[in-house]
Design a protein around this nucleic acid. Structure first.
Lengths: 196, 196
DNA sequence: CGATCTCCTTACCATCTGGTAAGTATTCCC
DNA sequence: GGGAATACTTACCAGATGGTAAGGAGATCG
């Protein structure tokens, strides 16, 4: 395996930092230090900090898209698809927490970066809405507003997968076992909500 | 009505700024400017920026607690309580978006401030868990893990109520009518999930 | 060999950051 | 009236921040 290019290592470090400590909480020096180069080297690859954020968002969006696409491969329509999505999301949250962390903080913050991310994920969400509508049409899912259902599932899964602090308050240590349990419970919850 | 004390106006401005632009994205000069005083006057009332955050969290937690307590007054046990909670949360999100925004960003960021907030809201969450358990015991709610159900409801409601960007991607403009519709759909969704 | 391009460094800078120190106007208390 | 407490202000500071300018090492190319 070839040594990763500096540019990619910079984006990776930025994705991690932005996704965990937030954009404003991360300085270019932080990112550069992580990679082992100077801040000016970072600015050589990315003219501004915001450009670096855009690249991080791009990578994060790709990763989310890839994870979900792979999860859905050879899973027939029906609730199994929802299950696959939830599992893939939890797996991503455990493997690369910074990716969903970035999604959360960027969508929250709003502005141009949020629009950027939104554009890159809109196809995914559109597919999800269409899937919901089709399942409802076929009578396999309860009839609700498809867009709202997608939004509810999105926020509950993202929330549970990225809210260790709240879990801790509820007396659940965010270790691997609890995460697996949370995942199972989330699936049961959604099954109850969706399947008549 | 007496003119509000400077100190309270500072906390209010800080709550708004921290809740919308985030802690790191807000400078003491921003807060001071909003109030119309100098940064040093802010530091007179609050020795450090973090202390100001703690006070903001305190006020936010009180506001959430008050909103929920008032919503539950004279609502008998059963799904009606869930409905009342969701309505109160959406109402709070529309009236004072910065309050839930602060809750979100603080719980996300972690650290001491998150612990602070967690402590102030833990009683609320404990009550919610106990309520869920009792309802399940009585057979009015589907039997699921009560803590996970609370977490799922918490994150989906908070998510929907504070994710205008995602709503926009789904083709829903975050105006008042859509918010009311989202609230209704959220209640239907939870009813389906909880009630056998 | 010399030129150019890529990728990085050192040196620098204006601005902003949270925070300190000292002074001042007003009010309260005696 | 004099002293002290309250609620600010102006003046200041050290360090961090995003960003610029210029230069250098090394590979590629003619």
């Amino acid at each position: 395996m070839a040594a990763p290019k500096t540019r990619d290592r910079v984006v990776d470090a930025a994705l991690w930092a932005f996704g965990t400590r937030g954009y404003d909480g991360t300085s270019l020096d932080d990112v550069a230090g992580e990679v082992g180069i100077t801040k000016q080297a970072v600015l050589y690859h990315f003219p501004t900090k915001e450009e670096l954020l855009r690249s991080s968002i791009e990578v994060a969006a790709e990763e989310v898209g890839a994870a979900l696409a792979q999860a859905l491969r050879s899973v027939p329509p029906g609730f199994g698809r929802v299950e696959a999505i939830v599992k893939a999301t939890f797996s991503l949250a455990a493997r690369r927490p910074e990716v969903l962390g970035l999604v959360r903080s960027v969508t929250r913050q709003g502005g141009a970066p949020a629009g950027e991310l939104a554009g890159r994920l809109s196809a995914l969400l559109d597919d999800a809405v269409a899937f919901m509508a089709a399942e409802m049409e076929a009578g396999r899912f309860r009839s609700l507003e498809p867009r709202m259902v997608v939004l509810a599932i999105y926020s509950s899964v993202i929330g549970v997968a990225t809210e260790p602090e709240v879990m801790r308050v509820l007396g659940v240590e965010p270790d691997l076992r609890s995460l697996v349990q949370a995942r199972r419970q989330m699936i049961e919850f959604l099954r109850a909500a969706l399947c008549p």
